[in-house]
């Protein structure tokens, strides 16, 4: 446990070299360690996302949480920026990959880096964590209830989101998936499809679905928060990152 930490705002190069905002949290101690990119949920770069970043710093990682909506609404409050991003149809996958690449490069450039970087995302960020791990050299990825990794996207959805079925064979890192058994997006059937596809392609995949939990069970400031699922989920994440991002 590294309770003494430094948390600050920085600007890092993202997709196409664009400068984007990022929240950085780091243990205040000099030792070699892995890095974690926290990919925020659809509601934006909010307090909850930054709390998660600090928790990973407490676990002993250097952490970056990029503001994926920097370009849509520079300087706006997280909820206003999220409203703009949603109204514009969400953010393109290619840009997300570029922004996560920038965050991973930032982490690997820190003097404390052991060269290993993992990604984790929640809600839309869960899908984006898988997406990034299909295109970037990361060492571990965690998908917390990301919708449309598998499954069909209803045609009337204005958000420009597609499933990742055609990209999953290219997954480059071990994946941990944490889901709510009561969730509809992703549904237990969609999670089973993910498991089947990754098994077919010989990918390393650990998965856990929590009975009684729905979507967003890690979100402490929402009625969907589920103590049992969140506590067990945090333990699994700590073990998973400890195994793959350790020295």
């Amino acid at each position: 446990m590294y309770e003494s930490m430094i948390a600050t705002l920085v600007r890092i190069p993202g997709h196409n070299g664009d400068e984007i905002e990022a929240y950085v949290a780091r243990p205040e101690a000099a030792f070699s360690r892995g890095g974690v990119v926290v990919i925020h949920h659809l509601p934006g770069w909010d307090r909850g996302s930054k709390e998660i970043a600090r928790r990973f710093a407490e676990l002993g990682y250097d952490v970056v949480c990029p503001n994926l909506y920097t370009r849509e609404a520079p300087g706006a409050s997280p909820e206003d920026a999220a409203a703009v991003a949603r109204a514009q149809g969400g953010i393109p996958d290619e840009r997300l990959v570029g922004d996560v690449a920038g965050a991973a490069a930032y982490l690997r450039g820190l003097e404390t880096s052991n060269g290993k970087v993992g990604t984790i995302g929640y809600c839309s960020g869960g899908r984006q964590s898988v997406l990034a791990a299909c295109h970037l050299d990361v060492d571990a990825a965690v998908d917390c209830y990301g919708a449309f990794v598998t499954g069909e996207v209803p045609t009337e959805f204005p958000l420009k989101v597609t499933n990742l079925v055609d990209q999953l064979p290219g997954l480059r890192a071990p994946l941990l998936g944490l889901f709510g058994a009561e969730d509809k997006y992703p549904s237990p059937e969609q999670v089973a499809e993910l498991e089947r596809i990754l098994a077919e392609h010989g990918k390393e995949f650990e998965s856990r679905s929590y009975e009684g939990a729905g979507h967003a069970f890690f979100a402490t400031d929402r009625p969907s928060y589920n103590v049992a699922a969140a506590n067990d989920g945090w333990e699994r994440i700590a073990t998973f990152f400890g195994k793959h991002l350790g020295a």
Partner: peptide, 9 residues
């Protein structure tokens, strides 16, 4: 669930 469903006017 996260519906993503968005309608604009």
């Amino acid at each position: 669930m996260c519906t993503y469903t968005t309608v604009q006017a």
